[in-house]
Amino acid sequence: MKLLFQGDQGKAICEHCGPVKTTYLYRDVPLSDSGKVVKNILVGVCDKCESVASIPAQSTPAIKAEREKAVKSIEAVLPAPYLEVLDMAAFKVSSSATTEMRKYLVLAYLHKHLESKAKPSDWTVFERGFVKSIKLPTKRFSIKVSPKMEDDFLCVKDMFNMSKTDTLKTIINEIKEDILDKGNVSPEIQMIAKMALT
């Protein structure tokens, strides 16, 4: 791959000046639709008017990263025991886990379903243990994710043919069954935990 450095010369068609020579410099450049600014990327600057006239291929990873920053969320109001078993599972994976680990566990299990297309577990089995006569408190489950991860969640929701809340209940039930009931912490989950805690 061709690599450019600050100070290198290039050519471009500047929207103000037409065909021009450019110099590659680091600039903050906005995205056209979202208005977000990608900071400090190498661009070709018009030697006449100093506007951004070209963007080299090597700046794409930084542009992609800025666009994919967590801007969406996966949310539901769940009976408190769901959040408790999720946190217990996170603690079983690593005693240093914080509530942030909830996100990684849920996303890992979502991803497993996307890959395997396995049938969802039956979350209602877990709720049979709830005492019916007592109204359980509810808690909000909310994680910030990238647009791609939100799409993956919606894909799994459609695969399950369930609501967002029931999809999350299913995923958390599977985390409970694997990690708490069977004591299985897969190497993949262990790796995710290591990366999440560094």
Binding site: I13, V29, G44, S51, V52, A53, I55, P56
Partner: peptide, 10 residues
Amino acid sequence: YDHEPRAGAI
């Protein structure tokens, strides 16, 4: 290859 910006934006 490079990319052409639009109104100074990506």
